[in-house]
Design a protein around this nucleic acid. Structure first.
Lengths: 230, 230
DNA sequence: TCCCAAGTGTGAAACTGTTCACGGTCGCGG
DNA sequence: CCGCGACCGTGAACAGTTTCACACTTGGGA
């Protein structure tokens, strides 16, 4: 896969013309992250924008007590790092690779002038941000209206869509993520997640393994979420 | 105050040239809202962007059980409605006037072409969105790391900065908001807020009144937040 | 290949915050 | 100027989660 193809695969640049892409390409570098490697930490100054080419990143913050909050898991085609770059503040979260990951990096001094010349890209970027706001506020809402089982079910389903694998073709979807991370994502403890998952395992709805959850009956999970929302 | 002055007072347009402002002005309308009047509801189609000229709006969503979540209180100079407009989805929340409010409205069909011709405004808009993401993720973090008193204290302080009044010049700051709204904002029940506030009143930290909280000792509240965070 | 760090499973006890069920009071709109 | 709706105050019982304290498993790296 050549560099241009890579760049085109990052959503916000997908709509650009060839020659604009070429121009932008010259300003990019690529970067590789090993599993567990940290891309940036909350509080760092942030002048780079990253596009994910392959792999997966988790976005978290850590309280001093060690209590983590995970905001999301990002995959290929997604953009990360725009916030600090756009408002000029510090990085708002810590970003860590959960597996080997390839990134495209773009520095603010190249990006801002580029956006000024290519308003469509700027609008596209704003669109990405708008979606981010939407998902954050949805989750905030869930967190204070939906009881724990509903939240776990909902997040499992959404993870299965964005990051699910099917070990056997046509078989059930598997979500690769330790229970601790699931807990951080849902806003609860590892223990609570474990207990809920075990309960579902007994009902045959999921199957558990070290670092993974297999959704045997997604429909039952949907039923759980439906019980609470709206 | 003439129309142009109004437009310039809305943050994202503050950096525009005179002639650009004039151009944009022709596309705007003004709108007035009475107290408690609803600007839009979650789920509506959304094609307007609003700039707040005066007054205050609250942004909320309501679960079917009647449990509300308040995302924020917006004041003069702030922009609202960008999200639905940028991602083409439904309105993501309900917006209600808490007092008499004057708005500037701008339709998508005028705004998008305008942004394409004025990339700086597009970038500015992206900046607003970035700030929105930041505040939402901060709150998400608080909500699952900080116990209730800390969250209440923190929100009171931030409200006092953005919407506080000083009934007597140089006197203590007063926040005008019913306890129910405070609860929705912090993500708890009215009762819990009331109990905490009463406790603080007994300690002389705040003073309560119908629909208002007077921060007599903001420093003590800061101490409460400091106890938990970081 | 063996070891150990990371991850999982589980119960009991403690607690934080909610729910429920009231009564009281304020102040504004008719 | 008075009534009624909106807002405040409060306690008791309850529920859902967290905390704590373990034992157990597993897979990958030295």
């Amino acid at each position: 896969m050549d560099r241009r193809e890579l760049l085109g695969s990052v959503s916000i640049f997908a709509s650009l013309e060839e020659k604009e892409l070429d121009l932008l390409l010259q300003a990019t570098t690529t970067k590789k992250l090993k599993p567990k490697e940290v891309l940036c930490r909350k509080g760092d100054p942030g002048n780079q924008l990253y596009g994910i080419l392959s792999g997966a990143l988790k976005v978290t913050t850590t309280g001093t007590d060690g209590k983590d909050v995970m905001f999301g898991l990002m995959g290929p085609g997604e953009v990360i790092g725009e916030i600090a770059l756009l408002d000029g503040e510090e990085r708002s979260a810590t970003v860590t690779a959960v597996e080997g990951t390839e990134l495209l990096t773009l520095h603010r001094r190249e990006l801002i002038p580029f956006l000024e010349k290519n308003p469509r890209a700027a609008i596209g970027l704003a669109g990405v941000l708008a979606a981010r706001v939407r998902s954050l506020s949805d989750r905030a809402e869930d967190r204070q209206t939906m009881p724990l089982p509903g939240r776990i079910a909902k997040r499992l389903l959404s993870l299965s869509e964005s990051h699910g694998k099917r070990p056997i073709v046509g078989g059930p979807v598997e979500v690769r993520m330790p229970q601790q991370d699931l807990a951080d994502l849902v806003g609860t403890t590892r223990e609570s997640v474990n207990k809920q998952l075990r309960a579902w395992e007994d009902e045959g709805i999921v199957e558990l393994g070290r670092g993974r959850v297999v959704l045997k009956e997604p429909a039952s999970l949907e039923a759980v979420t439906a019980m609470f929302e709206l």
